[in-house]
Amino acid sequence: MRIRDLLDRRSIKLGGSATDKQDVINQMVDLMNAGGRIADVETYRAGVFAREEEGTTGIGEGIAIPHCKSDAVKEPGLAAMTVPSGVDYDALDGAPVELIFLIAAPNTEDNVHLDVLSKLSTLLMDEDFTAKLKAAKTVDEFLTIIDEAESGKERTEGIVGNEGGKLLLAVTACPTGIAHTYMAAEAIEKAAKERELAVKVETRGSGGAKNVLTNDEIEKADGIIVAADTNVPMDRFNGKRVVITKVADGINKADELIDKALSGSAPVFKGEGSQSESTGQAGGGSVYKHLMSGVSHMLPFVIGGGILVALAFLVDTICGYGESAGGAFGTMTPLSAFLKYVGGLAMGLM
């Protein structure tokens, strides 16, 4: 499977415009839906916005990669849009976004598409590649740029870079495990190679752990970075100096993280047992992440409850109680009363 297999022509818009972040995300969801990949567009839309609440997907350098893994997705897909004039997206670097890729991933055990999405995430760290996409004039040109870049980019497993240089190890992970995980890995690896270091990055995405660090590598490491917004196994680093941070820093502050990892100033990690895990977020951030995850799972119930209540009002209106029911509107018939009761229960779950 290749990137182009996930990117329907109907889901590409070049030279678009948007008033703000909400507007551009809504447009992207509509583009995705036009490609026939979505079973329930409003549930998917709610999921995209819920993911955005966990942290902006505007990664900087004019790029945003909103994404959602949901039961509302029939099959994996991509949507893409260029916005020449830029749009305020609350990006990590504060700059307007000019290139957006929306990712739709089904909530299934079949993760063959994840390798393709990880490759796209890696390609988006190449400034020449993104510049060409932003300048594309036609959909055919846009797709050709992706095809050519994908053909020339294969991620190498194991230790890469200068074999005689200092050894830098890293682990990257994010809650969804679709995009940020691999973009952080690419940024750290690229920065390490520029310094002529030997480097190996373990990724923990939706497809599981890849390029896993060995005990021997950890023992020999001159520096270790864990850039993660979700739990990763940490006891293996017991007694080693480890830089622990959020995955966004892996994307945007790779050089700074490497400096700290190799300086010897990072704190020594002390494990607390075989199940010791860590994330790059503070306690409050972790609570917020889990809270928002719960909210996103409850949204279908709330939306369904609202629809049932609306149907209750509709039934009473059809039966002629629209102006005479007063405060009992929505409960004047057995059917409307049932619908309003069930709808109220569903909405009350929130």
Rank of each mutant, 00 (worst) to 15 (best):
I3H: 11
D8E: 10
R9S: 13
R9L: 09
K13W: 12
G15D: 03
V24C: 01
V24H: 08
I25L: 05
M28V: 03
L31R: 09
G36M: 12
G36L: 15
V41G: 02
V41C: 02
E42K: 14
E52K: 12
E53P: 00
G55N: 07
T56V: 05
T57W: 10
G58C: 07
C68P: 04
E75M: 09
G77R: 08
A105C: 12
V112Y: 10
S118F: 08
S118T: 01
T130Q: 07
L133M: 02
A135F: 01
A135Y: 06
K153V: 15
V160I: 13
G161I: 01
N162F: 09
L168H: 06
L169N: 04
L169R: 13
T172W: 14
A173F: 09
C174K: 06
P175S: 05
Y182G: 05
A187Q: 07
E189A: 15
E189C: 12
E202Q: 08
T203L: 04
T203F: 03
R204M: 12
N211G: 04
T214M: 02
E219P: 02
A227I: 07
T230L: 07
P233E: 09
F237H: 01
F237Y: 01
N238C: 02
G239H: 02
D249P: 14
N252V: 08
D259R: 05
K260Y: 09
E272H: 12
S274N: 13
Q275S: 12
E277N: 11
A282G: 05
Y288S: 13
F301D: 15
V309N: 04
Y321E: 09
Y321Q: 12
E323N: 14
T331S: 07
G343T: 01
G348H: 04
